[in-house]
Design a protein around this nucleic acid. Structure first.
Lengths: 219, 219
DNA sequence: CTTGACAACTTACGCTGTAAGGTTAATTTT
DNA sequence: AAAATTAACCTTACAGCGTAAGTTGTCAAG
């Protein structure tokens, strides 16, 4: 007649990997801001504080999630032409970062500093330097390309395609009447056009980088 | 001998404008995640719930802050060449968005839908269409340029220049030893280099857009 | 002087991350 | 086999969060 069901305590049920897997699931289901240690515990069938035995804090857990995603990025080796290598690396980063869409915005704003991430960063920076721009210019071109990449990931995972986050909303009729330019262009802002738009912008940057390099070499 | 100091109640002390001003101050002081209605109230010398008479929710307040920033953006009229107009508009957006650095990341991820913001958006989209790319391409070029702009704003206000957000940190010695590429390139990632890097990337995009347009016209 | 409305305040609720300490199961030592 | 130790998980509790609901004080109009 005991109402409360006694929890069977068993050791070794949890592991860092299990917790990380469950975290991605909860984040996708509840959204990044809807995620909490208690919801994660519920998903795992344990108590919130049990997680703290495996991760010292939520921040440590998040870092592990970032590390896991970033470390799965494959930077192309020198078996292809330079432009191709950059192209593949950028697309690969985008693919991995958007694998768990709800978590992507976190990756974008996260200032990584773990050895895992720094190693990857080091490889990518090396890739840009291999373009032969010299230290400073290749560093700046890397940043500029990152700007584009991060902005794209952010828009594709947390942008207008998900509907407005605003409290004040404008109806579709009002939109068509008062802001026809937005209405017309909006047709190309949906999920279906993400790849095409991204490739146009990326090719623009790649074209320019090649032009810069050729110009420097010709001199 | 009364320990508690009685609060003098006065009407009309608060206004939307006052609250918004104080909000920007608290956000800059405490950071976006450190901001709260209670801290805002403390700054204003009132109670948290008093704010709710002027803004129905925190989300409404945030929206007002976004509106205020976005509406202060000046889109250049047709008194200058097309490239120049885009250039000025992009730099102006960046200037306004980074005016309150701690709030900038919120603007970047915010999916605006208020008339104020839509009007501005409509103008900018019109600017891209004036480039003569046709509806679809100008829409995609606008998005690609936005990606770059948003990524830049995000990095400049919430990026590595503010130190790592990671829990795990790598010392400077370890960085120089294990990740020399990061170390070397990092010299150009500081605040001092923001403008130069941003201009390089922006000019690349503008150059390409002009090239695309000239190519289309020549055909 | 009374009345009514408005602006500010008080209290309370369910949520959050997590510090501190308790409990129990598995392992190791005797 | 029994005892001691250690590791894994749970319970409780706290401060802070946004905000719903209800209360109180103040000022302007009648």
């Amino acid at each position: 007649m005991d109402i409360s069901v006694k929890k069977k305590r068993t050791r070794g049920r949890l592991s860092r990997e299990m917790i990380e897997d469950a975290a991605f699931e909860v984040i996708e289901r509840e959204g990044l801001s809807g995620f909490s240690m208690r919801k994660l515990a519920a998903e795992l069938g344990c108590e919130a504080m049990s997680i703290y035995h495996h991760f010292p804090s939520q921040a440590h857990l998040y870092e592990a999630l970032v590390d896991r995603q970033i470390s799965s990025i494959k930077i192309p080796d020198d078996g292809m032409r330079w432009r191709q290598r950059i192209h593949v690396a950028v697309k690969e980063y985008r693919r991995v970062a958007t694998e768990h869409p709800a978590f992507a915005p976190f990756i974008v704003v996260y200032r990584m500093n773990s050895p895992t991430c720094l190693a990857k960063l080091n490889d990518v920076i090396g890739l840009f330097e291999a373009g032969g721009f010299g230290l400073e210019l290749s560093a700046r071109l890397f940043r500029a390309t990152s700007y584009y990449l991060m902005g794209a990931i952010l828009d594709e995972t947390a942008g207008y395609a998900k509907g407005p986050s605003a409290v004040t909303t404008v109806s579709d009729e009002a939109l068509a009447r008062d802001f026809p330019g937005v209405m017309a262009a909006g047709a190309y802002f949906g999920t279906a056009g993400f790849d095409k738009t991204f490739d146009i912008g990326l090719d623009m940057l790649l074209d320019e980088m090649e032009r810069i390099r050729d110009g420097a070499n010709a001199r």
